[in-house]
Nucleic acid binder design. Sequence first.
DNA 1: GCAAAGACTTAGTAGATATGTG
DNA 2: CACATATCTACTAAGTCTTTGC
Length: 574
Amino acid sequence: MLGVLYASQYRAMRWEEEKTNDGVKWKQLEHKGPYFVPLYEPLPDDVQFYYDGKPLKLSLATEEIATFYAKMLDHEYTTKEIFQNNFFNDWRKEMTPQEQEIIKQLDKCDFREIHKYFVDKNEARKALSKEEKQKLKEEADKIQEEYGYCILDGHREKIGNFKTEPPGLFRGRGDHPKMGMLKKRIMPEDVIINCSKDSKIPEPPVGHKWKEVRFDNTVTWLASWTENIQNSLKYIMLNPSSKLKGEKDWQKFEVARKLKDVVHKIRAQYQADWKSKEMKKRQRAVALYFIDKLALRAGNEKEEGETADTVGCCSLRVEHIKLHSKLDGQEHVVEFDFLGKDSIRYYNKVSVEKPVFKNLQLFMKNKDPGDDLFDRLSTAVLNKHLQKLMNGLTAKVFRTYNASITLQEQLKALTNPEDSVAGKLLSYNRANRAVAILCNHQRSTPKTFEKSMQNLQTKIDAKKEQLEKAQQELEEAEDEFKDKKDAKAEANVQKKKKLLERLKEQLAKLNVQATDKEENKQIALGTSKLNYLDPRISIAWCKKFGVPIEKIFNKTQREKFAWAIDMTDEDFEF
DNA sequence: GCAAAGACTTAGTAGATATGTG
DNA sequence: CACATATCTACTAAGTCTTTGC
């Protein structure tokens, strides 16, 4: 074979579908191991901790943990009782016996001086000169260069998270029972290295050993450790731009496209199952209907008291829905109100088919608010059923499928080929937004939202004024041309016309911006774009309507979707 | 057949960086 | 050019689903 390949051939080969199904993920894996975050640097002597109003010199380990709390002093977390208690408990465990003897109440601890020290330090860093900042950047780049890449089957690939997580206080989301607990420092002795046998095995930092070095090519991680809060594993894995991740991503969307072919049959079946004699089947059918229609997550069981109380479809409880025979002119309305992943609230009122409504009444009969709505159902049962309906089908495929098909339909409905690029982008964002709403992807309203909205309005008003003025000037110029009929006057008319056109465009652009911003207030578009929307739909749309891909995908996104950018033409259909 | 462990994807946010503006 | 604002990136928690071990 020739040593030279055309770029397109190379690309086609690079994304060629994986044939192996023996679970082997790679043949060669070489890397440097994780980068360990720097050790704790003690506070200067003039920065003091006070207990009960008196300065108290802390041992190194105790001081380090104190700084974790001090740094968070103006964060809402430190006002929460659970956070305070968990922190204080864990902190006391690390104290010397003498310190334990003295430090007995958190409210007698004064961290303010330590807090100020870190605030000042932060400011100082921000105020650094360009050259000094450049130097810091170069140092960071050097670390990235050395630890941030690995060799996988002959390709140099970027690693996603190559640094160990620094110690600190656990920041769980929502009402997390473990918030404030001490997240311990990861040492080489905690870390398992995974690489290929014949590769250069990473060296542990001097004076240290790895917990284990293994050669498992059926998994994709490079290193792992067990974190001490939930006692679960953490991994160092490849960046989404890597071939391995890209192929997996592609595969995910291919499974979702396969669902497109059978979804009608599946829908017909679960509708029929609403009337099944078996309670278990009815529950399965109603749950699947929710997952399909509302894009709910599967809802695995969680260990009580270990995490925030959140639910998905299969773990919904009676207290999470209300039934209304009639509401706001609609029949058979189900009102959902529960906390989902990341304790994000799901609130929705949906009019459902009568049999669904009847079934829900049945499922709720003689149950307490805290009882499971689908008591005969689990995600395992549901997924086992789905697996029989289509190879590779699980609950989450419905989210991917419905998100992608919605984008495709919305783009078709909303795009006007006559629009400017800005107008088309508004349509794109609206289509994206429809998906984000479906998937309930929310964000907290940016702190400066109201203000920046006002600023934009001021700009719009100013532009309107300019426009009116330009309009007048144009009329005057036209009058003058009627009088004089000379070349100079004609040129002036043309000039004013151009100006007017430009201002009109600018105003239109600002208006589009304002609409977009308002509609986006509490909705996060990024998550669906990155995880649920088949990028080929977006790329085909760009090509079809002459929108540069950079307008919808930033650098990171283009890297992640390199597989799709390489293979998609404007005719692609999901 | 089940629970726990393991592997991998999906999620919002904080802080860094880029861009626009007076 | 300094500052404000918008956008991007890194981070790591929190899910889903599969595998393991009894």
